[in-house]
Design a protein around this nucleic acid. Structure first.
Lengths: 113, 113
DNA sequence: ATAGCATACCTAGCAACGCAGGGTATGAAA
DNA sequence: TTTCATACCCTGCGTTGCTAGGTATGCTAT
């Protein structure tokens, strides 16, 4: 799958997954891969900078946590702004998807009759 | 609408419109705007480089034509490769859209029960 | 013990893309 | 003769996802 296609949509995906309960980077990658049936396998070099960008934008906040195994994890939570932004982005996605789908659907005898 | 969202999908859109019968740059812009109900108003700085890129890739071919008004136009036509690529890109779009839609749809009590 | 693997984080630099902002030229309308 | 719509072009920029590296921990098998 052409990586260029993801551009502009990754934020929404990450926000959505964070809202859903997968809280730290490594788990978010696995979650996305799983929930997309392996269609979307994001490398770490994609997810970590994205999380930092979202945090800098005030959409999520991070907190170091101790996993049961004793490992350190940086867990993320949606802010209010993040929640609102997610809703907005979902609406934008729906509009966008409708537009593109319409454009890719051949007019087929429906044009300028 | 966030311009970043279009990335990776514009080729398919342009190919689709060219296949549909709008043959030259300026008209393609109008056609896209019209068929998207004004949601997608591409600036010329977007469409012309894209057409050149597609031509260089062998997906379309161009030809100078004389419009009825006497104006010169560079008209584009799909090549066989372009037609095949369009089909492929449409399939890719559908898969992509399904994946993103699924990810943006909240699991809602369906996760890990 | 120790080698290997999954986990878990990070960064610098690259390449691609859409767009802003500029330019040229023609024909029709005012 | 000025204005507008048509019609084309290009340079340079900002954003973004990815590549390719790196560090460190804990478990497991040798």
């Amino acid at each position: 799958m052409n990586p260029e296609m993801l551009k502009g949509h990754l934020d929404a995906v990450v926000l959505s997954v964070v809202e859903g309960g997968a809280h730290y980077g490594y788990a978010i990658i696995k979650e996305i891969s799983q929930r997309s049936q392996g269609a979307l396998n994001l490398p770490e070099g994609t997810i970590y900078p994205t999380l930092h960008r979202l945090e800098k934008a005030g959409l999520i906040v991070s907190q170091w946590e101790q996993a049961p195994s004793g490992r350190k994890r940086r867990t993320y939570t949606l802010t209010d702004l993040g929640r609102r932004t997610l809703t907005e982005r979902c609406d934008q996605w729906n509009s966008f998807a409708n537009v593109i789908t319409a454009l890719l659907t051949k007019p087929r005898a429906a044009t300028a009759l």
